[in-house]
Design a binder for these strands. Sequence first.
RNA 1: GUGGAUGUAGCUCAGUUGGUUAGAGCACCAGAUUGUGGUUCUGGGGGUCGCCGGUUCGAGCCCGGUCUUCCACCCCA
Length: 457
Amino acid sequence: MASVKPSVPKGTRDFSPAEMAKRNYIFDTIKSVFRKYGYQQIETPAMEKLSTLMGKYGEEGDKLIFKIINNGDFLADGGINESNITADSKKMLPLIAEKALRYDLTVPFARYVVMHQNEISFPFKRFQVQPVWRADRPQRGRYREFYQCDADVVGSNSLLNEAEFVLIYDEALSKLGLRDFTIKLNNRKILSGIAEIIDKNDNIVYLTVAIDKLDKIGLDGVIKELLEKGFTNADIEKIKPVILLEGSNEAKLASLRDALAKSETGLKGCDEIETVLNYIANCPTKTAKVELDITLARGLNYYTGAIFEVKTNEVAMGSIGGGGRYDDLTGMFGLKGLTGVGISFGADRIYDVMEELNLFPEATTESTQVLICCFDADGERYAFPLVQRLREQDITAELYPAGAKIKKQLDYANSKNIPYTIVIGSDEIQSGLLAFKNMTSGVQEKLTAGEIMKRLK
RNA sequence: GUGGAUGUAGCUCAGUUGGUUAGAGCACCAGAUUGUGGUUCUGGGGGUCGCCGGUUCGAGCCCGGUCUUCCACCCCA
């Protein structure tokens, strides 16, 4: 077979030992916080039925789902024939692909809840740390395979959950060493209220997209864009206070209540935000700034209440986390009236941020604690039970195999960042005093095996 | 999906208007040093110049296509 130049698909990556150490540091930190708040881990398959995923993420989302072509002769077995063959790929797709890679963790979780509803006691708090795949065009901080760390609670409409997620974001990201980040809050009901007062329910997306550009293109630019999208001058007058919202969260809420006075839904949204902010006020975040931002329009397809987004202010990077409340996600799978709220951490983006800010502790790259180096086969026979004794004491220890030169063995220790070595030759075997070397300082001492173990514990 | 850049040794990068055998630093291997690493010195291995095609007497350099990575949109973690 002709040799092929090795490569991985666009937007995917290998992770080497040093990277995995850092990635696990992120995963372990986030998981430990999830557990501390009472969330339990589940996993779901990498692939789902295509029908489970399609239509849940909007038209754009459907395009970004990786489809898996049917096994076997998909042209013959898929039931494609003269009568149903067409040039419309949307219609052909279900005939050639019935599985797809998961696009996020929320929809598979909704599917899981419906399938396992009889085993679950509500409210159900679960977390999930797994890769997801999107056929997006890769960029910095944007990959086609990346990990999400999700925590969701279903079966509780209490706003306490929303408040707790703010604290989870704050605690996990603070623990990872981020110093300046903002948790942005919005509420879908406020967006609905804005659309309601100008009777433009179908155009919330244009509205939020335009408002979001305020600091880029200014008020005139926003107005121009809104006019182009079919909004009238009268509409714009009504929502101007909303576009120009500024000041503290309290001030923003007050002007929103003014502007939304005629919308019951809008006022409900304001109340919900206020309740969450009040919980937080009594139990402040350590690091995070919490900010009401009505331009947050993410996940418009299924969010119905709170919307979250987390941004770091230390480096230029898209959001490192997001989430929200969905009142009826399981409804799509036949289980009505079950509400859920959840958040997600983008582990790969957090990694990129931490790498840029140099936030990984030294210790994450340290693997083995002590390496035993021998001059000859006698030393190896002597060292083999010794390395096992060290391991029994929970000391991470290695015995360098196959009698290489001591120089090579010590080079190996350096390249693996191993802080201590034990050198064993005939003198050491005879006296029982082993050469114990500190690789950082270069200091070498003659110690018994027992003394060395005490040093390493 | 639209538009724009990029690609030379394991890594970071030089490489003149197209012209002999494509270079440097770091890394790697060996020796100086047969019981001791990180410093130093000496030597060495390593390249289909992303890939395919075209122009030319001649292409790392020019042209077309393709792939990768990156940037701006769109969207998102």
